[in-house]
Write a protein that binds this DNA or RNA. Structure first.
Lengths: 342, 342
DNA sequence: CCCCGGTGTGGGAGCGCTCCCATACAGGGG
DNA sequence: CCCCTGTATGGGAGCGCTCCCACACCGGGG
């Protein structure tokens, strides 16, 4: 069939009556080319519909103008969260106007995971954005070790061997604002359904909760803290434990909206009214939060900004300044969205 | 610093004591290499930690092993829907085991849009998956015209100039199942808050609704159909119109859950009980649907399968067989999720 | 004993670009 | 009038791979 080859830089050069070098110079802006020549080249490009071949360029420049967004959560529930949606939005926006492409990489199986590591450290992308909720992920260190620019979404749980740039959301502050709200409403027996202890978000939200309690001079007895797994079901189960251990509680801070949904269900089943008997505040501001009965007071995270900051940090610092750049941490504030549950 | 170059195929060849061609043959499987040689090459590759340079390969093969997922919805609200999340999941899974990479392309501004068109038709990806909810999107035709393999998510609204592969969800059938449910519950004045008339999903869901009505021998007077824009607010507004024009309605089929949420709000404000006075069925099964008051009966779409089928169709047909392949259409069934609203 | 086909294998050519050195030319000062 | 500096331009080399042609080698049939 047609099979006609796409125009090359060489063809543009011939058509414009100049050398390849000149065309290249025009395309890549920067250096000096006389206005007339520049114009001639531009015309030839337009006439031919020339589009530079990225592979050829990448081969010589060793840059691909592509960055990967790696979602390293095995259960890809992550995609469902507005959390992830916001990040993608923020990342794309910034990348778009830096002229970078976004490669979305996921790894479901362990084999996928290994291949992904090879791929990413193989120089196929200029940098990597890593949103990893898990603690035992070896990817960051591996990439950093291979000299691949990396920016993490969420703080590293342990101090990494290679210090790394990251953008985090102020989980401590967010949780504190949630609990403070409960305190301000006059609650005194405030329980929490905390997140998993092996996730940074879980740890930090619990810490924020405790700080707010301490600040108000409220006690923090062990029976008022139960850990969940951030899921609906986990929240329901945790609430049942809480009700057994401390039937007189008058408020709950759930470290995720999903868990808050479960809490709500258990509370209803137990005949407790929300917020009259038990006030409830969640975390995340998921799509469901506005539509529960009663609508959920919760903590909204600036996910889109997070994505944007990650991309910016990667492009402008991690990639631009190379491995010797001083690792930066950006921490973003949350906002309490007050509805009716607490 | 280090700046050491990554190992090349040439280095592997030297180390294994063979020629470049042989190494290439081993890497790309296919043709015959003696077991001993193959083993020696494998060893050298492992020792060196060699990873093939994609740019170099792409330069000669003219294939990039990358496909783009284009989200052409200007308001990127799309990302928030489980709809999109499912698609991404399905797409990644299939792409992963085809050894293909996923490029996520978004275009917010018109300038973005133009650039995206250049980019995609410029041979930088092997194929394009296009999820476009809008009718006036010139991209499919442009890409097909440029000989780029394309698979659409959702049927084309108008017969395209270049026939194209697509995967659709049976909106007609899904909507019919929703309305049938209402009919089966004994409702007789069944209204619909339809989607925009310029979207395929909007048209088809309205058609399904009407078919179910006809099938039951129920009238379909104009005052029982109002168009919304798929949004919460639009649904609330549409419901107000409906209540004015046909106060005696006893059921509503909303063509999206977001609109159903608005419908629910308006109904509550008007003092109508759901489902006692007015039964309600939505469409999409969004995250919020399970948690409204009452929980929403709605139509769930097989989004993950849709993504998977799109990727499969692209890789196995559109790319593999080239532009002469007979355009295929895959249509997937929906499932009615019965909760309490209708 | 020669020829022939089938296997394995080496390595030149070339994909389309950027980099950089060489060259050409224009002026200004000695 | 020559030299020197600076600016604009051409084009060779080479990035790391795949493709493909040429070649070596091995037996078996004539």
């Amino acid at each position: 069939m047609g099979e006609e080859r796409r125009p090359t830089l060489e063809m543009v050069a011939r058509r414009a009556g100049v050398g390849r070098g000149t065309v290249s110079r025009v395309i890549n802006g920067s250096s000096r080319v006389s206005p007339d020549t520049r114009e001639a080249v531009r015309t030839a490009i337009a006439e031919l519909g020339y589009v530079p071949n990225r592979a050829a360029r990448a081969l010589v420049t060793r840059r691909t103008d592509t960055v990967a967004l790696v979602v390293s959560e095995p259960e890809e529930r992550l995609f469902d969260q507005p959390f992830f949606a916001g990040i993608v939005r923020g990342v794309s926006a910034v990348l778009n106007d830096r002229g970078l492409q976004l490669l979305l990489a996921t790894a479901r199986t362990d084999a996928d995971h290994g291949r992904l590591g090879d791929y990413l450290s193989g120089g196929h992308v200029d940098g990597v954005l890593l949103v990893s909720l898990h603690t035992d992920d070896p990817l960051p260190d591996r990439l950093a070790g291979a000299g691949v620019p990396v920016v993490l979404g969420g703080r590293p749980l342990y101090p990494p061997r290679h210090p790394v740039h990251y953008v985090d959301i102020d989980n401590v502050g967010g949780a504190a604002s949630a609990t403070r709200r409960l305190v301000g409403a006059g609650r005194r027996r405030i329980a929490t359904v905390a997140g998993p202890a092996d996730m940074a978000a879980g740890q930090d939200r619990l810490r924020g909760h405790r700080e707010a309690l301490a600040e108000a001079g409220l006690p923090d007895p062990p029976e008022l803290t139960v850990h969940g797994d951030f899921s609906h079901e986990g929240g329901a189960r945790a609430m049942r434990e809480l009700l057994d251990a401390a039937p007189d509680l008058d408020a709950v801070f759930a470290a995720s909206d999903d868990m808050a949904l479960g809490v709500l269900r258990t509370l209803r089943e137990a005949g407790r009214r929300v917020p009259e008997d038990v006030a409830l505040v969640g975390y995340d501001d998921t799509a469901a939060a506005a539509h529960t009965d009663p609508p959920l007071t919760t903590v909204r995270q600036p996910t889109e900004r997070m994505g944007g900051e990650m991309a910016r940090l990667l492009a402008d610092t991690a990639i631009a300044e190379g491995p010797d750049a001083k690792p930066q941490a950006v921490v973003l504030d949350t906002r309490l969205v007050v509805r009716e549950s607490g």
